[in-house]
């Protein structure tokens, strides 16, 4: 498998970090000046891309690196959204405090999901996480006194230190979290944890016999990806300013999965590319009803069949760097 060669090739690739840093810096610079050219809707889409990219980064650590499928990330996204929204609007906490606190709360839930995951693989894990997703979504729906139930929750614009955060402000906040997330994922994946997760994906037996504490790393992967997803959820709640339990369904979980698969499993660049694809392609086909879903599904299947490494993996191969 290519992952094995990736691990073997790690020390030799240190020299290429320079160009990756340049690429990342260029991307961030472009993202920083983008609001000056975009209209309101374009800015909304770009913010959404940044938010989904944060989810994709987290999910990619779990599914791409550690090989653990999850169909409950939409629900975790929802829990993050609700936790942040409720802490801000009902408890009156400042947005910048409720966002990480809400995310930590969701992380605890993500770690709880990891407990059965320690015993389950592939299909069984998919079903268990699917079940957790349904339970979490249903809980949000039925806890009417707190969440407003199916009627949803309308939110006022967030304020930071007395200043109302507009669309541009929220975009820069999401971008800041994305950069932080990139930095975190980059460090995590290059270091000891990343190597351990990749080996767990390849063979749990081999990993265990090398002294890797599988249970601990799996819980770590679940918790970290839940944290990323919840932060994104907290940002999403204030981007759309109206949240409803219905929107955090299994379909969205499949959407998250498709982002990282299309972008490239187990790559950081792939998370960004996948999120961009997920937001932009349906926009291009918006005139035709059902076409976005169709194109998306077809691309998902074709990527699996023809280029399992995703768009990012293809791009890297074309550029001659593996």
């Amino acid at each position: 498998m290519t992952n094995a060669t990736d691990i073997a090739g790690l020390p030799g690739r240190r020299s290429s970090h320079g160009s990756e840093l340049v690429l990342a810096g260029l991307g961030v610079a472009l993202a920083c000046v983008a609001p000056f050219w975009l209209n309101g809707y374009g800015l909304y889409l770009l913010t959404l891309t940044a938010i989904f990219a944060i989810v994709a980064l987290g999910l990619n650590l779990l599914t791409g690196y550690a090989g653990q499928i999850s169909l409950c990330h939409a629900a975790l996204f929802g829990v993050g959204a609700y936790a942040t929204a409720l802490l801000t609007s009902k408890a009156g906490w400042p947005y910048l405090v409720s966002l990480p606190v809400g995310a930590l709360l969701t992380t605890a839930i993500g770690a709880a999901v990891a407990v059965p995951a320690l015993r389950l693989k592939n299909l069984y894990l998919a079903i268990a996480t699917l079940g957790f997703g349904v339970v979490l979504q249903k809980t949000i729906f039925e806890w009417r006194s707190l969440t407003g139930g199916g009627g949803g929750l309308s939110l006022a614009p967030p304020t930071i230190a007395g200043h109302e955060l507009g669309a541009t402000g929220l975009y820069y906040l999401a971008l800041a979290f994305l950069v932080l997330g990139l930095w975190g994922a980059w460090n995590l994946s290059r270091g000891r944890t990343g190597r351990a997760l990749r080996l767990i994906k390849e063979s749990e037996i081999a990993a265990a016999s090398l002294g890797i504490h599988i249970a601990r790393y799996k819980v770590t992967a679940f918790a970290v990806s839940a944290f990323y997803t919840a932060i994104a959820g907290g940002l999403f709640a204030y981007l759309v300013r109206y949240i409803n339990p219905e929107s955090f369904n299994v379909g969205l979980s499949i959407g998250f999965l498709s982002m990282i698969v299309i972008g490239g499993l187990g790559t950081i660049g792939g998370s960004i590319v996948g999120a961009l694809f997920y937001v932009v392609v349906p926009e291009l086909l918006r005139g035709i009803k059902d076409a976005p879903g169709l194109v998306f599904g077809v691309v998902l299947v074709m990527v699996m069949v023809f280029m399992p490494q995703g768009l990012w993996g293809m791009a890297r191969r074309f550029l001659g760097r593996r």
């Binding site: 499928i69 499949i254 999965l257 498709s258 698969v261 059902d290 076409a291 976005p292 879903g293 169709l294 998306f296 599904g297 077809v298 691309v299 998902l300 299947v301 699996m304 069949v305």
Partner: peptide, 12 residues
Amino acid sequence: IATLGLNVVLNS
């Protein structure tokens, strides 16, 4: 994942 994708395709 491929069957999840097919799921979306057939629905559309």
